[in-house]
Computed example of a mutant assay.
Amino acid sequence: MNSIVERLKEVRSQIENACQQCNRSPDSVQLLAVSKTKPASAIRALYQAGQRSFGENYLQEALSKQQELKDLEALDWHFIGPIQSNKTRDIAAHFAWVQSIDRVKIARRLNEQRPNSLPPLQVLIQVNIDDEASKSGVAPDEVAHLAASIAQFPQLTLRGLMTIPAATTSAKAASESLSAMQSLYSELASQYPTVDTLSMGMSNDLAPAIAAGSTMVRVGTALFGARETT
């Protein structure tokens, strides 16, 4: 697992360098390790190296890892995948964050099913910034309505926005998408005092996302290596 620890150091260095390039503090950007399809042993190795926040896309896989890693304290689990109605109860009970809310129905179910013994679920609205049919998320002009609904749910705390921009070879198109997200985020933050998180940027676009104002980057491949294929 030494290679994973070395990759963690490299990713942290990339974040620090990207922040320096745009005169931001490295502390202003959180690293979320996207651990989907990777074994619990890899998560444990990163935990021992100081990483605490992990993102999972698949519920049953995540629950299995959580059980295997239950001896670790202060693990911060984020659900970042599409959400089906029949999965909301387990998501509400076993995650600290949900980054992929795109419907009032899902928000309502998460609110109703969040155990009272736990603090409110920290949530992000997923935005389909490039209007891709293959991706989940609300259209930019639907953000305000969904945010207003979430703000009424006592077991949810609205923290901001998440997006997965379209893969493109055009630096201009990518920059426009990132800039549009930053504008949406700034508008939302001006209306809701709890909003402080813009989850944007992955292994291949970490630096431009940080330059555009991202406060959380979701990194999988650069930490764990390529996803397993079957």
Results as ranks from 00 to 15, higher is better:
D71R: 00
R103W: 09
P154W: 02
D102S: 10
Q84S: 14
N116C: 08
L156T: 06
Q113M: 08
A148H: 03
A139Q: 14
D71T: 01
D76T: 07
L121T: 10
D131P: 00
A62I: 02
I125E: 11
L69G: 01
S100T: 11
L72R: 01
P82N: 12
P119Q: 08
A93K: 15
A107P: 06
G55V: 03
P82L: 08
W97L: 08
R108E: 15
L63M: 08
D141I: 07
A139Y: 09
S64I: 04
F54K: 02
L118W: 01
I150C: 12
L110Y: 11
Q99T: 05
Q152V: 02
E68W: 00
S85R: 15
P120M: 05
V138M: 11
D141S: 13
A133M: 01
R89M: 11
S136P: 04
D131A: 15
H78T: 07
D141R: 07
E112I: 05
G160Q: 04
L59I: 12
E142L: 09
Q60I: 01
D141E: 15
A107Q: 08
P119I: 02
A96E: 14
Q99S: 11
P120W: 04
N86Q: 14
R89E: 15
N86C: 12
Q126L: 11
Y58H: 06
V98C: 15
S100Y: 04
A93P: 12
P82C: 07
Q113C: 06
I83P: 13
Q113I: 05
I150N: 12
Q99W: 05
E142W: 01
V123G: 10
N86K: 14
Y58A: 02
Y58M: 02
D102Q: 04
V143A: 13
L59R: 10
A133Y: 00
A107M: 07
E56C: 04
L72M: 03
P115N: 05
E73W: 02
E56L: 03
N111C: 15
H78K: 06
Q84F: 09
D141Y: 09
A93G: 15
L158D: 03
A148Y: 00
V104R: 12
K87F: 07
D71G: 00
Y58N: 03
R108K: 14
Q66M: 14
L69D: 02
D131T: 06
